[in-house]
Design a protein around this nucleic acid. Structure first.
Lengths: 171, 171
DNA sequence: TGCTTCCCTTATCATTTGGTAAGAAGGCAC
DNA sequence: GTGCCTTCTTACCAAATGATAAGGGAAGCA
């Protein structure tokens, strides 16, 4: 049931992209996904005037628009690199050749994000800004060291000013 | 690609349960799911001391612990009926007989909740309590008429008092 | 070097929200 | 009926957050 990552990597090819490079465009029907060898990817939603940070992927994660990969439609978000990155780029068509593996791939990718989002939603429902920040500090401390704070603030549903206040109140 | 609902219904059997009946217990490995003919189901997370309303299902929706149905483990939530309900009860084992249909079933159920939760998360990240309430009023007005407001408050990530204040400020 | 741009912080004030307490209205059991 | 329980509202105060403005520092570029 688990995803065969080595197989997935063998299907793809190694690529390097610079900071701020855009992997996925909003509305795009994605034919690719990536595995992060080094770097951070950021999922961004364009919400009336403001840019919302929906998620970050780190080393070892699979990057791609889930909505689009599943064949549900065009990507709802754009995905950009926060740092210079080294990735394994995988053409979807190469996974689709093996249908059983492709089904397994889709189930794995979606269930992974399903679990992450379920947790994330509970955090928003039950914790205030300080609580959400502390949770991030506890569970993904690398993000706080490698990602600009205004992106973290958006990810936490806060203004940069509020996040700054929360951080200064703690330390 | 879409789920064959008539087929699903033909597999199950009609049942009636009273208000407050518990369909799924936390930790349970579910062998059933349901289609709602009449009534409302409520998904509840037990979060340190407090009870969190994660979701509501209405007429036409498929009810069940997605996490458990996908074989990922025991249910993370309990599911109870908000009203007396009429349901089509479906034994999982009966769907699993047809593997292609079962794969399709799982993909459909999960992608449905994936999309719902993605939207819901964006609401929490970008809107305050009033905004989230107005969104609900616009998009699921039936819930406000049929579900006790303290459950709605929890669903919106608010205290009952805050929701009450928001409602009185609007009307 | 000097300049701009980006990133972050701090301060102030208005608004929103939570916590606590209290009370009203309705349903239900006895 | 009486009494209990649930649900909902209102009021008050403290805390959290947003909006706006301002400033400093670091990085990048001509």
């Amino acid at each position: 049931m688990n995803l065969d990552i080595p197989k997935l990597k063998s299907i793809g090819k190694r690529v390097s992209y610079p900071k701020n490079f855009q992997l996925v465009q909003k509305g795009e029907r994605c034919q690719k996904c990536w595995i992060i060898e080094k770097g951070i990817a950021r999922y961004m939603y364009l919400q009336e005037e403001q840019e919302l940070t929906g998620w970050f992927d780190l080393e070892g994660d699979i990057v791609g628009s889930v909505y689009s990969l599943l064949g549900l439609g065009g990507a709802r978000e754009k995905i950009q690199l926060v740092e210079d990155a080294e990735l394994i780029e995988i053409q979807l068509v190469d996974i689709q050749k093996d249908d059983a593996y492709f089904q397994n791939f889709k189930m794995n990718v979606m269930s992974h994000y399903f679990i992450e989002m379920e947790n994330r939603l509970k955090l928003f429902q039950s914790l205030d800004g300080k609580g959400r920040y502390l949770y991030l500090l506890e569970n993904k401390p690398q993000l706080l060291q490698r990602v600009p704070l205004h992106m973290i603030a958006s990810f936490l549903g806060l203004t940069p000013e509020s996040l700054s206040r929360i951080r200064s109140a703690i330390s």
